[in-house]
Write a protein that binds this DNA or RNA. Structure first.
Lengths: 332, 332
DNA sequence: ATGAAAGCGCTAACAG
DNA sequence: CTGTTAGCGCTTTCAT
């Protein structure tokens, strides 16, 4: 029993493809197809469990009802949760998510971008690691429906959903200092994206405000290629240099560090304070205690969806830049 | 500057679509296209940055290079991680993942299943909440490339990647008893899937082996529709009835319960032991201490990929059932 | 060494 | 009220 097409159905019912197509698309009344014919078609379709071929429809209509969701790592809870929210928002509109993880790799990102565009996704939502890439430039040039989130390149005008990084990080770090931290290290992924740079700026700003001397040695950079090992090494360095607080620029390394602390430095978990950008549920009961900056993921998803829908409906992009305020979670 | 098609290119180069298509598909030599023509085409294509339309190709070839990944919740770390591994495995083959979350809702699952099939996904990997559904039955009937994981229906013959549930849970619970737990409650999502039933069986079996009287009242069921609230309620019931251990049939409710304990029953976190099917990283340092059953997610992803590729290459399904042994993580 | 033409399954303007 | 037909962009057989 091979798959039936509209043609088969039309043939078997002694009707034309057009009539069948109209009825299936609920244009039966509008197109003045007789009730009788409509019923005949609908009944038959149900009986043989006809399934329309979306690919053919997509080709014809130049629209796939698919959104590409491109992030560094879909299994990172931050991206996974946003993905889930996007899926929910798009569900009622009949859009689905095609996912891709770039591993913070510029080449892979470019490849995925191209593949997704070839697959004719209707829009892209991406946390890019290289907004200046040629692929992205040419997408922007043709006004491809595109929204960036989590990462920004101030030199590139586009749609962005971002959170405020600098002040938020400053506030979090100041909070730690107020709670008595005196020597604060920082661990970050390679800060070649703007948001990380700003978070580091915020850290520096807090030190300055609170009259704590800034020490370049206390800023530790973890290479994107082996995050686990890198975090382990840098955390060790900081602990041996006697810090009483460690600031992390994203959840991924913070989570790894919490694990490391509980595994190798159990005796210190009560004497060190953590500060992390991005919140994850387990911070609520983790040791070391974590002051975190929670990004409003529901808003990020909501605005992304809205902008995309706006573009898709109006066919023109306005290059909105939305900056959301994250929430400081203290846990003192 | 609108999108160029093969036709445009052929036209602009004074060649036929055929020739261009051959060259683009690296069949230039095989088809005896002159080097000169080949170079002309390749150069031009690069210059105008031509991007082939995968949808048209898919329609023609009846193959989309897309795999549908259907799970209860893509933001659950267990499913997110497997998703990531699948993505990696399929990456080199040029396959991408279309994702869908069913929320354990039978209707939504059926809808998603249909939509994905309409979209002509080449195969489906699904953690189904209702394997006996009509949609699934008809897919199996036409031998659609399909592998189930995490959930099984013994009455339905199909490809399954599973883990052993009963003995593994028994071992975990016995371990808790050996570590001195005497009154063990259990919290589970509605056990209408076979794997959950088996995990509950394992719990009962352990009690029996260890001569602990079974008390129906200590088995608490959380409704799928409001998991957070449900877990809160059932955990309260158990704690008030004086249990010294709580067994969870999956990670989702265990993670919620850990949060609840640390938020509302902080004084008890050292006096209660948790046992959970599914492992998550934070169990390594969570209180209450958790004995967990870790599913081999890398193997789950690997075997799923292999079976799918097998089917896709050979065009025949063998209905393999693979049962993997999970790993007990003790943390005493 | 290259081209014409059919066809994948669907939609929709136009015809009758 | 229903059918004919062209065409979305691509592959591929067959012809030249």
């Amino acid at each position: 029993m091979k798959k039936k097409s509209i043609k088969d159905i039309a043939h078997e019912l002694d009707l034309s493809k057009t009539t069948v197509s109209f009825v299936l698309n609920k244009k039966g009344d509008e197109k003045n197809i007789s009730k009788k014919t409509q019923k005949k078609i609908l009944d038959y379709v149900k009986k043989v469990n006809y399934q329309p071929n979306q690919i053919a429809k997509s080709l014809k209509q130049g629209q796939t009802n698919t959104i590409g969701y491109l992030v560094p790592d879909i299994s990172n809870p931050f991206f996974a949760k946003i993905g889930r929210l996007l899926e929910d928002h798009f569900w009622e509109k009949g859009y689905h998510l095609l996912i891709g993880s770039t591993d913070e790799n510029t080449d892979k990102e470019a490849q995925l971008l191209n593949m997704f565009v070839n697959r004719q996704v209707d829009a892209l939502i991406v946390a890019s690691c290289f907004i200046q890439s040629d692929s992205i430039k040419s997408l922007l040039a043709i006004n491809f429906p595109l929204v960036f989130f989590d990462r920004e390149d101030p030199d590139v005008t586009a749609n962005y959903i971002l959170v405020e990084n600098k002040i938020s990080m400053k506030n979090a770090v100041e909070k730690a200092i107020e709670l008595n931290s005196k020597k604060l290290g920082l661990i970050t992924l390679t800060p070649d994206v703007y948001s990380l740079k700003n978070r580091i700026e915020g850290y520096k700003m807090a030190l300055e405000n609170k009259k704590i001397a800034f020490d370049e040695q206390l800023i530790r950079i973890v290479d994107n290629n082996d995050i686990q090992k890198g975090t382990e090494k840098e955390l060790k360095t900081l602990i041996e240099s006697g810090v009483d607080a460690v600031v992390f620029t994203n959840n991924q390394i913070a989570v790894i560090a919490i694990w490391l602390m509980n595994t190798y430095y159990k005796d210190k978990v009560n004497n060190i304070r953590f500060v992390s950008f991005d919140n994850v549920d387990q911070f609520d009961y983790s040791l070391p205690k974590v002051i975190s900056v929670a990004q409003p993921i529901d808003k990020i998803a909501k605005y992304s969806t809205e902008i995309i829908e706006d573009i898709l409906n109006s066919k023109k992009s306005k290059n909105k830049r939305i900056e959301l305020m994250p929430k400081l979670i203290e846990r003192n």
